[in-house]
Design a protein around this nucleic acid. Sequence first.
RNA 1: GCCGGCGUAGCUCAACUGGCAGAGCAGCUGAUUUGUAAUCAGCAGGUUGCGGGUUCGAGUCCCAUCGCCGGCUCCA
Length: 644
Amino acid sequence: MRITVEGNAVEIPDGATCAVALKAGLSGKRFKAALAARTGETLLDLSAPVPQGSEELAAVDIESPEGLEILRHSTAHIMACAVQRLFPGVKVTIGPAIDKGFYYDFDAPRPFTPDDFEAIEAEMRKIVAVGEPFTRREMSRDEALRFFGEKGESYKVELIQFLEADRVSLYDLAGFTDLCRGPHLPHAGFAKAVKLLSVAGAYWRGDEKNKMLSRIYGTAFADEVELKKYLHHLEEAKRRDHRKLGRELDLFDFHEDVAPGMVFWHPKGMMVRTILEDFLRKEHLKRGYELVQGPQLLRRELWEKSGHYANYRENMYFTEIEGDAYGIKPMNCLAHMLIYGSHIRSYRDLPVRYAELGVVHRHEMSGVLHGLLRVRQFTQDDAHIICRPDQLEDEIVGVMGLVRDLFNLFGFTYRIGVATRPEKSIGTDEAWELATNALIQALEKRGIPFQINEGDGAFYGPKIDGRVTDSLDREWQCSTIQCDFTLPERFDLHYVAESGERLRPVMVHRAILGSLERFVGILIEHCAGAFPTWLAPVQARVVTVTDAQESFAREARDALKQMGVRAEADLRNEKLGYKVRAAQLEKIPYILVIGDKELESRSVNVRLRNGETLGAKSLEETAGLILADSDQPFKQGGMHYRFS
RNA sequence: GCCGGCGUAGCUCAACUGGCAGAGCAGCUGAUUUGUAAUCAGCAGGUUGCGGGUUCGAGUCCCAUCGCCGGCUCCA
């Protein structure tokens, strides 16, 4: 029998096993992975005969990353097959593998609901149990158009019309035929650990002008153990949800009825924010920034002049004062430019670095709001650097240093992207090219790896994006560094050069943590509510064993406060275990127990958040311990105060 | 904004096909005075998101609206 391995035809004796097939013609990483897996434990059955009629090599190691992707994509086919068996008349569209699973978009008379999962999964299990083979065949473009046209699969017809190839490949599975590049599993029997997860609406080809399809998300793993692990991971993410922890830890809440998308910070949450803000201000002052602040409302004419009115109006709030239209600022740059423009500037004055923890309002569509991570009012750790073109690269390099230091401090790994000119934009081609190159060169100079995101830039300039990955491997966009030649032009900013000539400066818009709201949300999920000691709203709680220690407990709390520790006391008439449990659930870093023994020696018994007890210590010693712990990030936590 | 799901006490959730709105936790009060993740008892807690409609009767069915959740689109 003749089979094809990654495009190479190989002759295999009839009745040969997969092992023989593997030996016969190996190229392509997924087959190498399969070979490698032969020694270890694998679901690949090498003694199985090569299935008849299969043109693809009958072996896939579904434990390799490539194999897993094949498994998931194939599982999407199995699901589509099951859906068409159960719901005749449902049209298929596309069903790719995604990061942790797969989806398939259907055009169904009635959108699917989770109630349908049981039936679909049962039907899928039948296909898997039989081990229905995937078989590949090819036909010409016209044949395929006719084939899918006759079946009424109009979406497949549309897809083929967009393809440039003369011939297309199709895969058959138990009577279900799908247009597909492949590759696929040899047979459905591999897809044993499968689960459907959710339904959602999704636009055909991702365009909101197109029809809304019904999408089913699912996942598949090499075995049940891996699947369970992943489902557990999803549970863990749920447990860490900042919206849940925000309520449980009494950090913040929302009053959806009166202010959707706007945060009410409770005392503990505000403490975290305040510490963060103080830290950021100090850090910016160290790095040559100056603090400024502009107004919330600016006349509409100003937004027209900047281009925001034309490009960003639908996301802005407007109000009227004495008959004049005002826009509530969605960003801080205009005020900063007006401040810059209030003096004549010399080339010696540059760069000017204006920083503001700026409160902005953006009218986000109702469907996108999400806890602290997507809100309508938020605070940016914003700054604008106005500099000479020859200083631009150094300034970006400096900003990237701050990005690195801050993310290191919080223990985030991060990924950098460069976003280029979008369709809706202002400014000349030359300016765009200059700005884009400056960003790229600065990154290269720092040796920071990055990817290019075409057309993802702001309307006034290209940008560098920084996305952090949290402890659950999810990515969040925080940093944005934008190069802007356009607004200085529109606002006629200038500086006086050595020659006396008036020249145009460049402006860099940048935010490192992005929005403090979002960042606190990410941080909560990252540390599961257990803030590092320096950020913990309550660092220590004094807990009494009986009422007899009440007075000393108050004394101890006040003494700790005096020494700079954020301490409180739990004097409730409850058993020690109850109060320890409460403090532990609130993730307070230090629990200080006072019973009769400690009362006598005027000490506290120190218990850490992880359950470890350190024994009795004097109040001074305890305060020293806690303060050293909360100082750590500033002194030893990988901070680099260098500018280069 | 679009598709789907949902909205019952502060929180987590009950209430069969329409038939007297309930429990645990949290809270408050009292008893208890306790040694490192939950002492016991009692009390209080509600216009079932809001507004209409159908019905003898609506938490439950219908319409409208606000909001939330999961996605899509968007995201400076």
